[in-house]
Write a protein that binds this DNA or RNA. Structure first.
Lengths: 327, 327
DNA sequence: CTGTTAGCGCCTTCAT
DNA sequence: ATGAAGGCGCTAACAG
């Protein structure tokens, strides 16, 4: 593998000049530049990024941590990040944690070791004990915000979003509305529950803790729970915290012979493909996934490249209620 | 940021010894090791991977190129790669190309520039002109194999898979079977078409080019085509090259009032989640996606780490016919 | 078992 | 506009 030295020799210039050409420095005469370019071409020289990055103390890599990509939601976020990163000359190092805080922690250490310049944590579960000594200016939280990690973040207002969808159900005449959410130790799930509560109470109905079902994001668990729910017929709607949960709810309602949406309405969350494809199609909340990724990446890159101090930002992007057949 | 030098000074040893401790070299007395560890702890020293990688001429990064991850199929492949990579101390640099050969080419150059140690091309479209001068020992093709790039590969036998599913349809009594595939310049699509042809002919039916429909992998295009297909009722089945195509076909058949599977059978490909969830659930071919990723990563890593010459391998993994309601 | 030392390839002052 | 030279942090001979 030829090095700058070889190029320099062949072009009859110094390595400094070769380096200047490589980095598009202005201060090289056109004639010299051509000589160097020719030598590079002839030698098939390729700059060694391992050396360059080391010298510049910069990896041009952004770590992206998420629970999984087997989920169209996260796939869009990643795409937003990736496109923005590429546009700015960065690559992305992918880490899917299956919500293991240990794995997230292990990868976050790469910042201190300079393997990556910064990280975007997109919904991946993290724990306070694993976040000691992290450089919070090099980290952005996306979709989800754990307040114990003092970083910038980009997300939607989950409380408002869930409020909107429950309010919509009530305006449609529903009165006994269930709520299916994930574990409340996840900030967004807690927010969503609060949105449910607010919509219920503001509309003069009564909030009951027992109407809040906790389950995983897939469709099976909620399906099983509802199918065996002795008195599902007492209720006329359910607001779910994911589109897959909504599928589970619809399957259960169908199994019990309930007409959707007249006898029983179902709403989802995230607007993944299935919510459009399913029959009935599912009323849901669309998050601007691509924009979240894009914005998160942009803030991170700006921070990394701005010399001064950047303030931590909390960006709230707008969500959208997609009304379809299920409610 | 403290360096090995600082650690050495504090521990009262040489940098070489610190380096030995860092790299778990056996040749350090337990006592010295403890001293060094203590100094590392007290100083909060973190090895600079930019420097280490440069010195070792190794990035410990594997480039993964795919058309998209907004597709459960690829997400599983990536997971297989990622898990295997992590287990072996590698990270993965993600590149989604939307099937742009230019973008793929651009990223593949990172091998020559040593930003990554090797690459796995998983189904992403590549072009011969962009593949000049690539080190084929550092590249594995997964899922798809373009023969102009002489690399190892890991995939299923697409011809056999499509043969199996069409044969299944015929055994079920279907006689006029359509075939919906993607563009034939994609090797696997060509193979699948050959599988279709073989099953038709081996069963004494007549292969007709006009029964082969070409369309994109999403559900809409095939849906539109079939809905306006004047004589869909002449046919009693369609074998599709993706599960989403199958959804489109089912939607069209339903729209024309055809009973599935009795009047019209539909099969998909890939066994993505929707094929189980959809109603009717979709008969399809399951590819061992995770294993493909896993195996591809393992071969690549073995090649990278074996000093000698590795032979190019062609690994064919088994597929599986999942019979469900749609056929 | 431990220390000394020479780079890895590149960029970047500092001269000229 | 160009060249000479130092050094980024680490590892790996080699010497002892």
């Amino acid at each position: 593998m030829p090095t700058v030295k070889d190029v320099a020799k062949r072009a009859g210039v110094s390595v400094a000049t070769v380096s200047r050409v490589l980095n598009n420095s202005e201060k090289v005469s056109e004639q010299t530049r051509q000589k160097v370019l020719k030598a590079i071409e002839e030698l098939g020289f390729k700059p060694n990024l391992l050396a360059r990055n080391f010298r510049k103390d910069k990896s041009n890599l952004i770590l992206v941590i998420l629970p999984t990509i087997a989920n169209a939601y996260f796939a869009r976020v990643v795409k937003g990040i990736e496109d923005t990163a590429r546009k700015n000359g960065y690559g992305i190092l992918l880490c899917t944690t299956q919500n293991s805080p240990e794995i997230a922690a292990e990868y976050l250490k790469l910042i201190g070791k300079k393997q990556v310049d910064g990280a975007i944590i997109a919904s991946a579960k993290i724990e306070i004990d694993f976040c000691k000594g992290l450089d919070t200016r090099r980290i952005i939280q996306a979709c989800e915000f754990y307040s114990f990690l003092d970083t910038s973040c980009v997300k939607i207002d989950h409380k408002k979003a869930f409020y909107d969808v429950v309010d919509y159900l009530i305006k449609k005449g529903k009165k006994n509305i269930l709520c299916a959410i994930g574990n409340e130790d996840i900030p967004s799930e807690f927010e969503r529950k609060e949105g449910y509560r607010k919509a219920i109470e503001e509309n003069g109905l009564q909030f009951k803790e027992e109407n809040v079902i906790r389950c995983s994001y897939g469709w099976t668990e909620l399906y099983e729970k509802l199918k065996n729910f002795c008195c599902l017929k007492k209720y006329d709607a359910i607001a779910c915290s994911s589109d897959l949960m909504a599928v589970g709810a619809i399957k259960a309602a169908k199994a019990l012979g309930l007409k959707i949406p007249d006898e029983f309405s179902v709403t989802g969350f995230d607007n993944i493909m299935i919510s459009r494809l399913y029959e009935p199609s599912i009323t849901t909340i669309a998050q601007p996934m691509y924009s979240i990724g894009e914005k998160a990446a942009q803030i991170l890159i700006d921070t990394l490249e701005s010399p001064g101090v950047f303030e931590k930002q909390k960006i709230i992007l707008p969500h959208e209620l997609k009304t379809r057949e299920s409610a």
